[in-house]
Write a protein that binds this DNA or RNA. Sequence first.
DNA 1: AAAATAGAAGATATAAAGGTCTTTTATTAT
DNA 2: ATAATAAAAGACCTTTATATCTTCTATTTT
Lengths: 151, 151
Amino acid sequence: MFSQSCKYAIRAMFLVAQRSSEGRFVGIKEVAEGLDAPQHFIAKILQDLSKRGFITSAKGPKGGFLIDVNQRNTTLYDLVLAIDGNKLITSCCLGLKDCSEKNPCPVHNDFKPIRKKIHSMLDNTKVCDYNDELAQSVFYLKDAGIGPITN
Amino acid sequence: MFSQSCKYAIRAMFLVAQRSSEGRFVGIKEVAEGLDAPQHFIAKILQDLSKRGFITSAKGPKGGFLIDVNQRNTTLYDLVLAIDGNKLITSCCLGLKDCSEKNPCPVHNDFKPIRKKIHSMLDNTKVCDYNDELAQSVFYLKDAGIGPITN
DNA sequence: AAAATAGAAGATATAAAGGTCTTTTATTAT
DNA sequence: ATAATAAAAGACCTTTATATCTTCTATTTT
Ligand code: FES
Ligand code: FES
């Protein structure tokens, strides 16, 4: 569905949105650990998001990443569009070069409403929408560790 | 959404289902041309589908591929499952190792019904369901050629 | 000013997906 | 039988995605 970079980007944005909501910068190491993801790969992705203006960065001690007031309006679709492009929403599911009513593949009519739903869902979700749920562990951004063996 | 192999496989199955419905074998070259896809790549995919029993093959002159009466019940989900696995339907959209109610990511609840819809759609579509529409060019399996320039 | 911290940048490595090519084997028609 | 046909098989190549590593630069604290 999404590329690995895009999945990490979305999770990282959720995490930074939540942890930076009080104004502090969140270090890259903290992000990587919070997602259980490779640090350098996350760094690259966050730097890209920073260039695109979705996130604010600061170097040096006390530096890191932060999502400011304006950036809180970023939607998941903004992120997906920037990283993976619009192909998920606009390209033919079966790979025809042109997805349209003029040249529909056999599944075109079936997938159209599904893609619309995906699109509206992504478009209606902002990166700060789950700050509370994340704080309260209603939702997670990494897999729960291997718990006690439950025999 | 689907891997390139999977997209080709679905389109190839639709094409062979339609063109072999009168009992003749459809050559690999004809399939590749009918899909506007690389012949050797299609060959590899069809051979794999043949091994898995989704399609019947015959060597030599008048040989090719055919979908027999039993194979007409193959659904798109059968194909997707064989080629791409079940990750589209069962894995976390944001890449968590375990997608479940116990450890849900922030989009889990939103994506759950969407994935269910995709699954049921694929499960309810058989490879021979569009034989007529394909014959009548209601649906297409390759892009229409560059038509006359319409100034 | 010096040292420590932490992101920026880009080269490099690895793996997976996508695609091509050649040789072999089986079948049919002559 | 022989020649022609067409799939089977597998080696090989290319591209893209994913991940890692090293060096550089900016900032803060002491
Ligand atoms: S033409 Fe295939 S999804 Fe629209
Ligand atoms: S946990 Fe992410 S989709 Fe289920």
